[in-house]
Amino acid sequence: MAKEYLLAVEDEEDILELVRFNLARNGYEVGTAATGEEALKSVGKRKPDLIILDLMLPGLDGIEVCRQLKSGSETADIPVVMLTARGEESDIVTGLEIGADDYITKPFSPRVLMARIKAVLRRRELEETTSEEDVLRVRDLVIHPGRHEVTLDGNTVELTYSEFRVLHFLARRPGWVFTRYQIVDAVHGEDYPVTERSVDVQIVGLRKKLGRAGKYIETVRGVGYRFTD
């Protein structure tokens, strides 16, 4: 079985080596890049199974690199784990909105980094093996986990990876009420550094993209959210 190929993008040499060493020690094939431009060129030559992407990069920063990856048809499905010293809420929200799969702040534990990477790869593997029987249909809204696709009246609704996972999580259990932190834990894993406001921001964006189907996501005041048809 071929090794999974991961690309680490970091401009600080010592941190890049730390990430590279731990990835290699855990059995991954590793590519590296020190700038956003190098990262995009590397992806163009060989598509990685996952990218560890620093937010603060010289020239093209990590947010713009992620945005370009998620907007390209050939690269939109590449999981992105953001690695950054910036832990402000606005940065976390931005990362979620443009489709980052996870977000880890510096200084970080290599063990935590590896656990997060493995969790993201496992989630992607499960989604790729999802059968047609797992497709969710709510009136005119169709959610296909395997294809990472949502359609409304037959028209594709463009969602980020995180938005899709929030919608799928809620839609699998219609009528159940979930707190914001339950949603975060289910979508990103435990101890993900997200505040309640960032979850609200993501729900607002999700409702807007769903149009009239956005009403299926209800706010339960003082508790959280639920999906209802």
Rank of each mutant, 00 (worst) to 15 (best):
T75W: 09
V204H: 04
S131W: 05
L136T: 03
D14P: 01
A34C: 10
R139K: 14
P145C: 01
A34T: 14
M114G: 02
V80P: 05
P174T: 09
I78G: 00
L159N: 08
L206S: 04
V184S: 05
L170A: 05
L40F: 13
V65G: 09
Q182E: 15
F178N: 11
R124M: 06
D102K: 08
D61Q: 06
I183L: 06
E74R: 14
L206K: 07
H148A: 10
K41E: 14
L136D: 01
A2N: 11
D54E: 06
M1N: 07
F178P: 02
L6T: 06
K118A: 13
W176L: 15
D229L: 11
R212C: 02
V201F: 13
F178R: 07
E125T: 08
E12W: 09
D77C: 01
R123E: 13
R172W: 04
E158P: 12
V166G: 06
F164G: 12
V150W: 02
I78W: 04
L23Q: 10
R122C: 01
R197K: 10
R122T: 04
D77T: 02
S162R: 01
V187A: 07
V80R: 02
T129N: 01
V138Y: 14
L53Y: 04
D11W: 12
S42M: 12
G214Q: 11
E133M: 01
K70F: 15
E149P: 00
D54L: 11
E64P: 13
G211P: 10
N26R: 09
D14T: 10
D229V: 04
V223P: 00
F164Q: 09
Q68E: 14
Y161S: 15
G214H: 14
E12I: 10
Q202R: 12
G31C: 02
E4Q: 15
K106E: 08
V184E: 02
R212Q: 08
V80M: 02
D14L: 10
V93S: 12
S71G: 11
H148N: 05
A119D: 06
H144L: 00
V199N: 04
K70H: 13
V65Y: 06
R123G: 11
A115H: 03
M1V: 03
D229R: 04
